[in-house]
Design a protein around this nucleic acid. Structure first.
Lengths: 125, 125
DNA sequence: ACCATTGTTATAATCATCTATAACAATAGA
DNA sequence: TCTATTGTTATAGATGATTATAACAATGGT
């Protein structure tokens, strides 16, 4: 599942990159030690400017998720420590409410969504 | 659940408004015929400029979700027709993958997420 | 007819984003 | 030491988002 950006989205390109990379790292699709594309290469692949990629990498480096070293490249450090306690509960509720809301836009009740989710997991296990 | 915008988010304010209003309408929290705040009032409430609100309203009107009439105000027309077939399946998969990805960032396996989702629904039924 | 209310349009200023181009700085390897 | 590679910084221009202020246009009620 390669990186993909939507040039028509109102979300800034650098923010789309941050979001996707953060999720890929958190989910383990990008493992610690793994090499990321160079800023120049990724810029060519995504047809965006070098700075836009560098901006995203710099922010993720600031968060400690990746390590950028000039002359060498960029590697994944590791996933962030998952939040605990109240913050975790709040984020979980956000995720659920968001998913249920988007499902409702497809005409699905919460129960139907759970059913679809079960089907999805059975199909992809 | 009133509208809330995040001034620190990279997502443009007008896009945050569109997103929330679209979800509120799709989920039925904003019913057809219901009156939305005036652009001036909502701008004051959210501490943003009138234009930013007008921009969001205009886009939703273009999509047919709301009807704006000067001198009168803005009312909800109705939810959009939910997509069918392939597009629906694609969007559903997006919703699920997104939710599972964010849950993974909290350290949850898909199965644990389903469990949390069940708990959430039982608590809020 | 008048007037308050509401959305719309106009102007201008500021800031963020994205782009293009180029030079600079650190690293690794020949 | 030299050189290619990689990230970083600098400059400048274009576009979009946001704000402030003001005037304009349609609507509904008095």
């Amino acid at each position: 599942m390669p990186l993909a950006i939507d040039q028509t989205s109102p979300v800034p390109i650098y923010a789309q990159l941050i979001e996707q990379l953060r999720l890929d790292i958190a989910a383990g699709r990008l493992a610690p030690g793994e090499q990321l594309p160079t800023v120049r290469q990724l810029a060519v692949d995504l047809r965006v400017n070098m700075h836009t990629v560098a901006h995203a990498y710099a922010e993720l480096a600031r968060e400690g998720l990746i390590a950028v070293r000039r002359g060498v490249g960029t590697i994944v450090v590791g996933p962030p420590a998952p939040p605990q306690g109240d913050e975790r509960a709040r984020k979980l509720a956000d995720i659920i409410q968001n998913a249920l809301g988007q499902a409702a836009a497809l005409g699905l009740t919460p129960e139907e969504f759970v059913s679809e989710l079960d089907t999805y997991l059975r199909r992809n296990e």
